[in-house]
Design a protein around this nucleic acid. Structure first.
Lengths: 225, 225
DNA sequence: ATTATTAGTTAGGTAATACTAACTATTATA
DNA sequence: TATAATAGTTAGTATTACCTAACTAATAAT
């Protein structure tokens, strides 16, 4: 049996090693890194690492980095799955505000009932992404690929999050900086002007107009709304 | 802040002191009674009693009985409310079987979010009774009165639970025993025969016919179905 | 009224999860 | 390469929530 606390450690390890934004491939995690993420002292974490290793959930040698075992990863992904399904439930079925769902899902993710997860998944229509646009692992732990598209392909009225840029020239990046656009910036698509194919967008309630060329170079991830 | 364990003690005290079937008016609870209900040792319970008293949730003097303070009762009823709302949710919204809902609700009842409880309550249409027919305390802790009726007043197709008998003669009780009817027996109402006003019932998938006189003396509580 | 039984308490122990303070190993820098 | 900085570990402490064993108080039975 994995305790609630142990589950939180696994989730943190999953996050830091490959789920955090910007982490492309799996990376090993250090004790202090984990401690500071969990807002705990490294000695506390160190002790827990022994228990997790004992339970064959992580690999860890003294003074070395931490990696998840297949079992640890599987179990951690289950928590991530539950968290994101509950967030989706709260948002779409109970009209919770986008900002409130995380905290409640932090509690709900620890409810132990395979059947409940399955029923919630079904009720939601087996969603692949949560309201933040983050992928929901399936019951086997498989993570759906993000649907990344150009900003110019986003539908009018939708919001999206900037994931990457396909032009990395100084000029382009400077221009983005002036607009206040960087990774994770939320952009709302207001309108598409047929005449010159320019696009009207909204960033933090301020409107801008950008050309199709600029929009084509912004890779984004559509959000729920 | 009331811990999960403390919540379970409060819930148990609520149950033993006035919510358990057969308890008509509030009664004081003993340490051992509580311990055996919670399947714990009395020493363990004794220690917890100190903390609950410390937190002003119970009244307790050495070697004397335990009573809940208004705060303890209020807090305990909140847990009962959540438990029964979640059971109703699982049963009516997620098609859980009647038998499975308790265990999952035991976990869900500890989720801390006023808003979540309110939303679930609303989603369910502010029910007064859970699928077992037990009353759901409202947000102020008020407990709806059970709708107790004679078996003869139950609608065709409904199931109900025997709560009491209004005839306690030996003859009547013996007759009930022969039919396998006692307190908490579940009875399904199959049909009402207009001719002699007799009633066709089902007990554990076996059908019986009883007279109106018998049905009038059985007090029952309608269940969900 | 004495004694036996039942109810309740105390003392001391354990496991899980946190902490602080002091230590050691590893890595980076001058 | 010596040393400073960073990363990681160990030792000892606290709290919560459980336990067993041994005790005392209250109640029931003869």
């Amino acid at each position: 049996m994995i305790s609630l606390t142990e589950e939180n450690y696994l989730k943190a390890l999953i996050y830091l090693s490959f789920l955090a934004p910007g982490v492309e491939e799996k990376k090993d995690v250090g004790t202090n890194e984990l401690a500071s993420y969990l807002k705990l002292k490294s000695s506390t974490v160190n002790e827990m690492l022994k228990r997790l290793k004992e339970k064959n959930l992580i690999n860890h040698e003294k003074y070395k980095k931490i990696t998840l075992t297949p079992s640890g990863e599987q179990n951690g992904l289950k928590i991530v799955r539950k968290h994101r399904l509950w967030e989706t439930f709260l948002f779409t079925k109970l009209d919770f505000d986008w900002i409130e769902i995380h905290e409640v899902a932090e509690q709900l993710e620890h409810i132990k009932s395979e059947k409940l997860v399955g029923k919630i998944d079904k009720l939601l229509g087996y969603p692949n992404f949560d309201p933040h646009g983050d992928p929901i692992p399936d019951k086997h732990g498989k993570i759906p690929q993000r649907i990344t598209k150009n900003l110019s392909a986003v539908d009018i009225g939708k919001n999206c999050i900037v994931l990457a840029v396909s032009d990395t020239s100084k000029d382009f990046l400077n221009y983005l900086e002036d607009l206040g656009i960087s990774i994770k910036t939320e952009i709302g698509l207001i309108d598409k002007i047929a005449y010159d194919r320019s696009i009207k967008i909204k960033i933090k309630d301020k409107q801008y107009s950008i050309s199709k060329k600029v929009a084509d170079n912004l890779l984004v991830n559509e959000k729920f709304n």
